[in-house]
């Protein structure tokens, strides 16, 4: 279908506007900085419009624009100095899980009572990038494993293994934050243990 540029813009804008909040929060988790996140979203939108005639109408706009966002981030914002150490498999094996042994207190209650939204965001943002992107796309934005594989141009098996390790790292961090703040701290030795699954 041939459209005028004005019509093209209108279609683009109608698809884009509902996705902006998700694009912005994803940009924030990746750049970890509001100013960069805003610039990244603007740059991705500009690139997306330039490529919009190649977008097939009726296909997954959300996955398409997220792919542009993540590519733009990796090409223009991600610096080598931001690289984080990826825990070794052995370190990952020391998995901790929430293991209450008090009567009447569930691990859910402990988390609710100790962790703030800032703790959760801090934990997500401290994951190494390759794990963070998969965690954000699947667990926060609700993309399927297959969509995530397409967005990041990686095999679906890689999505699953990064997600699995990302979850373990995140759970371990949240557990540690929670233990630092737990009101039951004094009884940690006998009451609460970080237990290997």
């Amino acid at each position: 279908m041939v459209r005028t540029k004005e019509e093209q813009k209108k279609v683009f804008q109608e698809l884009l506007i509902p996705e902006l909040p998700a694009l912005f929060r994803t940009a924030l988790r990746m750049t970890r900085n509001r100013e960069d996140a805003e610039d990244l979203v603007q740059e991705a939108v500009t690139k997306a419009f330039a490529a919009f005639d190649r977008f097939e109408e009726g296909t997954n706009f959300r996955a398409w624009i997220f792919k542009i966002l993540t590519n733009t981030f990796i090409n223009n914002y991600y610096r080598l100095r931001d690289r984080q150490k990826v825990p070794s498999l052995e370190e990952m094996e020391e998995e901790t899980s929430f293991q209450p042994s008090f009567e009447g207190i569930t691990p859910e209650e402990v988390l609710l009572n100790t962790l703030t939204r800032e703790d959760i965001l801090r934990a997500i943002e401290s994951l190494p990038l390759e794990f963070r992107t998969v965690v954000v796309l699947v667990l926060i934005e609700g993309f399927s494993y297959k969509e995530t594989a397409e967005i990041l141009d990686i095999p679906i098996g890689t999505v699953m293994s990064r997600l699995h390790r990302g979850r373990r790292m995140l759970q371990k961090l949240l557990w540690e934050y929670s233990m630092q703040k737990t009101p039951f701290e004094k009884e940690n030795e006998k009451g609460w243990t970080a237990k290997t699954l």
């Binding site: 998700a22 912005f24 929060r25 924030l28 988790r29 805003e38 959760i120 926060i140």
Partner: peptide, 12 residues
């Protein structure tokens, strides 16, 4: 808990 907190930023 991770999902709901991770979706809670408002866009300027």
């Amino acid at each position: 808990m991770v999902r709901s907190n991770g979706r809670n930023d408002s866009i300027p």
